[in-house]
Amino acid sequence: MMKRAVTFTKHHTPNSLRVVARRVMSETHNTRLRISVPVESRSEFGNIYHCTIRKTASQWVKALFSDPVVYRYSGLLPYDPRPYKWRYPEALPPNRVVSSLFISYKGFMNLPKPDPYRAFFVLRDPRDIVVSGYFSYRSSHTAMGDVLQVRKVLQEKPFKEGLLHVIDHLAAKGTFRSLRSWATAPKTEAIGLFRYEDLTGEQQLEEVGRLMRHCGIPIPPSELAALVSRYSFSTMRRRVEAPGSVSHYRKGKSGDWRNHFDDDVYEAFAAEVGDLVEVLGYPPYDPSPGARLGQDS
């Protein structure tokens, strides 16, 4: 009953009140860290920036970097720019892990940043982003931004037409352009690219360890393993699910698009993204029925 009440409140509270609530929660969390968590290792970087697009486990990454163990081994407090009055391209507060920045590579490079800094971008197969975006817009995402307008359209359309609408919508929002901008950007030591599929897959511990090393956060192996266990995808899903609800961590399996795309949908998708799938290094489309049906890999 309590979970249902929380879910209802989350979906029906005005966005302005949710912003205030998030701000209070963030400040309370950071105050608690400052008071109760001793810093054992200070980061050499002025800021760490988590850059991404939507439907790439941004809430999971944010939770990971808000954990006390990250503060213990970095001295960097978590900072979510959304509850505050930050406006692009102003500098963000120093000594923070900034999560999440939904921004293109060009936009990120135009931000004033301390020297040195570290940044990472989380990418995902854009076909799975479409499917995840469909279910999020239609059922699970809180009512903010354009969610209610898109939700109304999707609830009035058959599933296939809904997928086509989401493809057009994401293209108009610049989601696919942002993915391409990061994938084709010059390689630098300061910026790392990480795949959603690796961060949430079978080698999650190794990949999260690589991410922490990139960010200069020396978490000991035993504490890293405990951190990853606390924030496993299945654990996060159980925390937020209520009976009859659709989880924000709905499924998350790589390749789920194969269960939902047909030739018409893929043709419309390809018309919007061009060779983006290949540029990102994901396997190309195989139109044969055997390649699509029954595969969730």
Rank of each mutant, 00 (worst) to 15 (best):
G174D: 08
N110F: 01
L170Y: 14
A171W: 00
S229A: 12
S74L: 06
S229M: 02
K160N: 11
T200G: 02
H169L: 05
E27P: 00
M236K: 07
V97D: 03
S132W: 03
A291F: 08
G290R: 05
T175F: 09
Y231S: 05
L123K: 11
L164Q: 11
E161N: 14
E206V: 13
L17K: 07
D198H: 08
V147N: 08
S16Q: 05
A271P: 01
F176I: 03
Y88S: 04
V265D: 03
F135S: 12
E161A: 15
P94M: 02
G145S: 02
L101H: 02
L193H: 10
F176H: 09
F121H: 10
S288M: 10
N47C: 15
K85M: 07
P186A: 06
T9R: 11
F65V: 13
T200P: 05
S26V: 05
D80G: 11
G209M: 01
R237K: 15
P218D: 10
D168W: 06
A190Y: 01
A5V: 15
V277F: 02
S41H: 10
H248C: 04
N110V: 04
E90N: 14
D296Y: 09
L154W: 01
G133W: 02
T184E: 15
R180H: 12
V277H: 07
K160T: 07
P78I: 07
Y79G: 12
D263M: 01
V147S: 03
V240I: 03
P112M: 06
F8Q: 04
D125C: 11
V69K: 00
D80L: 06
P78F: 09
E278F: 07
D286H: 07
F269W: 08
P289H: 07
L224C: 03
S234I: 11
T9V: 14
Y196P: 06
P289Q: 01
M109V: 12
G281F: 13
K160G: 05
S132T: 13
R151M: 06
A172K: 14
D115S: 14
H165N: 08
S247I: 03
N30W: 02
L76C: 04
N15T: 05
G145Q: 12
R210V: 06
G145V: 11
R118E: 12
R250E: 04
E241V: 14
D263L: 10
F120T: 08
V37E: 03
D146N: 13
P243D: 08
S178P: 00
S247G: 04
F176G: 06
R292Q: 14
L205V: 15
E90V: 00
R127Y: 07
H214F: 05
K253L: 12
A91S: 13
